[in-house]
Amino acid sequence: MAVLAVMSPAGLVDRLTAWDGMWYLRIAAGGYDLGAFLDAQDHPNPYTPRAFFPGYPVLIDWLSRTTGAGPVAAALIVSAVAGLFAAYGLARLGRIVRGGSARAGYLLVALFASAPMGIVLSMAYTEALFCALAVWALIGVLERRWELAGVCCALAGLVRSSALALALAVMLAALVSVRTDRWRAAPALVLAPTGLVAYLWWTGLRVRPEAGFTDQLRTWSDLEWQGWATKFDGGAATWRFLGQALTSDAGMSLLTVAVLGGSVALFGISSWRRLEWPLLVYGALVLVMCLGTSSLMHAKPRLLLPAFTLLIPVAIGLSNRRTSTAVLTVAGAAILSAWFGGYALDVWKYAI
């Protein structure tokens, strides 16, 4: 935040509410009926805002109404509080995993906060809120607290589409646990997908009330493509971007390639270190969703933040090193992250 304040002549608040942040603030203030905006095909489309999930705007509106805080302040407070819950959850997750410890948990928090686009956890974006719910859902899975896993996963489904990865991981873990936990895993199995399915269905009912249930569930994906040129293409767009980036002189493109490559490497390390399979499945699915979509390529470092489980082996490894090694590693990551966030939000003039 301090580095961003120094780098940004437009002002800190302006940068913390940029790009998607403005959409969330508009939805919080006026709902989804904001009028027609030009979509990715340059057609006026009144349904474009519905690509953004309602959980975060609802919390902004609620906090603003109950405290009298302005929408901007409310949005940043929600992100800050969610970030604290995420940090507490990550510290716990780092303790309860195989080979974990209190020190590993604290290092996991530090590494997560020092991710390349860690600044987004302090912005009017959904990452902090989603990650807080995701980490507690995964804690529920590992501790076999299935009600916690199901409720947190259901709420995460109202925040962003990454909840699909979380829901699949939680449901698979619940199914596998049926033999040992029997009916105790049922709440997670039933609740996990409800938030995501409810919003997708609700969107379909508003946009295509005459369509069938299946078509209504697909409506959100159609809006993503129409409004934001985003769809799952199996990684074709990402592959093209990699080829173009490696032959260009665009700094942000090369940095994005480095982050994507680092994420794939972290998945390999997590697999080799035998990370608990529900955590590995969740991280892998987030990675697949990110790399497999044609979304804005320079936003992918931000979209990879929810794959925090892939940082666990690094945290455990650092916890077994000397204190000076751990401190220097985390401090270096934090400095690089601060610069990366400032560069992405101020020097880079396009959306992230």
Rank of each mutant, 00 (worst) to 15 (best):
P278T: 15
M289N: 08
M7R: 15
R144L: 03
W146E: 10
G342K: 10
R206I: 02
L155F: 13
Y343S: 08
L304T: 10
G212C: 06
V264P: 00
V281M: 15
D42C: 06
L260E: 12
C131L: 09
W19A: 11
P49I: 14
A82M: 03
A91F: 07
V72D: 06
E147K: 14
G11E: 04
R144V: 02
P313A: 09
V6H: 06
R179H: 05
L191N: 02
V6P: 00
L63A: 08
A169C: 09
V197P: 00
L84P: 00
G11T: 12
G283F: 02
M289R: 03
T67I: 14
S294W: 01
S253T: 06
S162Y: 05
S161D: 01
L318A: 06
T247H: 14
L16D: 04
K300Q: 15
L305R: 12
V3R: 04
A74Y: 03
L254A: 12
T219P: 07
W136N: 05
I96T: 09
F340H: 15
R26M: 13
A334H: 01
L246R: 13
R240Y: 03
L4W: 04
G283C: 10
E143N: 08
L76N: 06
W348D: 05
Y125S: 04
S263A: 15
L200V: 01
V264D: 01
P116L: 09
V3G: 00
R182N: 07
V6C: 01
T67F: 11
L242W: 15
L191R: 03
A250L: 09
L129N: 07
A86C: 14
L12P: 10
T256E: 00
L311A: 13
R145N: 12
F52K: 01
G31Y: 10
V257H: 07
A299C: 01
W19R: 05
M7D: 01
G140I: 00
T66N: 04
G140V: 07
G243E: 02
C290R: 00
Y199Q: 09
G235C: 09
L16G: 04
R273C: 10
A331D: 02
H43V: 15
I352L: 14
L345S: 03
S101T: 08
G150L: 11
K231E: 01
Y106D: 02
A307D: 03
D249L: 10
F308L: 14
A198R: 08
A284N: 05
T67H: 12
L38A: 12
Y47M: 03
D249N: 14
R208V: 02
G30A: 13
L34M: 10
Y106Q: 10
A2S: 12
F308Y: 14
L168E: 01
A333M: 13
A344F: 10
L275H: 07
Y24T: 05
L217F: 11
S270T: 13
A75F: 05
I96R: 09
T194K: 04
A299P: 00
Y282F: 15
I312T: 06
A154G: 10
A51P: 00
G105C: 07
S253Q: 13
L84C: 13
G55C: 08
E224P: 00
A132G: 13
F37L: 14
R273T: 08
A236H: 12
L246A: 11
G100A: 08
T126G: 04
A69D: 06
V159I: 11
A74F: 01
A137V: 11
A169S: 15
S253Y: 11
G70M: 08
G204S: 10
L34W: 06
G262S: 08
I352N: 14
V190N: 02
